[in-house]
Design a binder for these strands. Structure first.
Lengths: 249, 249
DNA sequence: TAGTGGTCTAGACCACGGT
DNA sequence: CCGTGGTCTAGACCACTAG
């Protein structure tokens, strides 16, 4: 047939930002930067069509993405509502950590973020390419009800995170900081879990007898920034607070 | 404008199976029943359009569903390929269990499936409504390299699973059996993880000294059958084989 | 070059929520 | 009733894969 009424002029022939991606990014930023707060509704699909001069199919494609990533939830006849994201993530969390947020949860830095060389303490294999550069490292001790429950060590490549060593953490959460300050989201993880005897150091930190069983979790988190992976080694005293994990399709 | 060329006659006005759902179910069954085997390609989107007399949008909607649930993966320019599903599930698995499949993995039933009353040993809360009925229970000891690594107890409501106590497990996998015999899929889980001293019984079963640290995982699995939840208590010796977990958006 | 999936348009009807 | 999201049609062009 003829050359399709218009579709899109060759403004977008090759390598270009897809339209749904543009809407997606705009909305995501709006959520992360607080333009759209939790429980607020995004503009309706038709409004978004007008705003961006695109069809509903494309708008819906963008919203589907946000839905899949847990930023919004849709309500038939009402609209797309912004929700707390973490619920939909299959991330490990100490029971009563982020859920029972705020109350009686504390975090102590044993080492504030610094730039250094990669460690040998990471049990999950780090891609050799990454090891060529340096990394950021920080170490924390996390409390629930004034009791230390998790000793945490984190490594990540020191690339692209503007001024990371001087960044303060939003609500003591590294992930929330990544999201709101750098617009980077965690999109996946792989972990290995072991039961071990507490080392002398961990026993002291977690205030338990040496040789008490602790949970040792090694994780690599994948993010929306292609080369940014986060490596964590967690040591948890689960006597009172088990570690939880949920996932849903 | 006039009443839309045709769209769909009022054959589907209210409450009816959506068209994409029909395609989805057909393809899913095809995968589960072996019509489409792993690594095979599904019919192309255009073929499916013809087969079902629908448009590509609708076909793609069905495929998106299968994609999200991890049944297929798409290859631009080639087609939609059937893949091993578990990879995309955030399910806990003993490293080298299903992955290093077959070789040196064994399973021993300590208790074959029986019908009985609900237990008090389940640490994750069971919905009171479920407890009114009876449940199926089975208990297994699982080996890697001839070494016992996991002691597993499982409970599930005894409703709707035709002849479950006499069912043989496909490839020693309960989930594969659910999928291929009952067309039921695991769609989510919630778990709690603890490090504990091995009990006398578990120490014997797992061939370790009593008081050695083991991983205790309590899980409830959600399935595509609304009221069917599966409760598991796992006791793992992670000295050689850590437990793994992955998830991806 | 043919075929497959990826993106997008323009427009329709249906079902749900609140006024 | 109107507006919002849910489903679907018909057809287009683009980008990738393979013979």
């Amino acid at each position: 047939m003829k050359s399709g009424h218009h579709y899109l002029p060759n403004v977008y022939p090759n390598m270009s930002e897809k339209r749904y991606r543009k809407v997606y990014n705009a909305l995501k930023s709006g959520i992360q930067l607080g333009t759209y707060t939790v429980d607020a509704y995004l503009p309706s699909e038709n409004e978004l069509c007008d705003t961006y001069g695109i069809t509903r199919t494309t708008v819906r494609r963008a919203l589907d993405e946000l839905l899949k990533e847990g930023f919004i939830q849709k309500e038939h006849g009402k609209g797309s509502k912004v929700v707390e994201r973490r619920k939909s993530l299959g991330l490990l969390s100490v029971k009563g950590f982020s859920e029972a947020v705020g109350e009686s949860v504390k975090t102590l830095f044993l080492q504030r973020p610094i730039e250094k060389n990669w460690d040998n303490e990471i049990t999950i294999e780090v891609e050799p390419e990454l090891k060529k550069g340096s990394c950021y490292y920080f170490e924390r001790l996390r409390f629930v009800d004034e009791k230390p429950v998790m000793h945490e060590k984190n490594w990540l490549p020191s690339t692209g995170l503007e001024d990371f060593t001087n960044t303060f953490f939003v609500e003591d959460s590294f992930f929330k900081t990544l999201s709101s300050r750098y617009l980077i989201e965690v999109v996946g993880s792989t972990s290995e879990i072991r039961a071990e005897f507490a080392s002398k150091n961990d026993a002291e930190l977690l205030n338990i007898e040496q040789g008490f069983p602790i949970l040792h979790i090694s994780i690599v988190f994948f993010t929306s920034k292609p080369k940014l992976k986060i490596y964590s080694e967690l040591y948890c005293n689960t006597r009172e607070f088990p570690v939880g994990n949920s996932f849903h399709l």
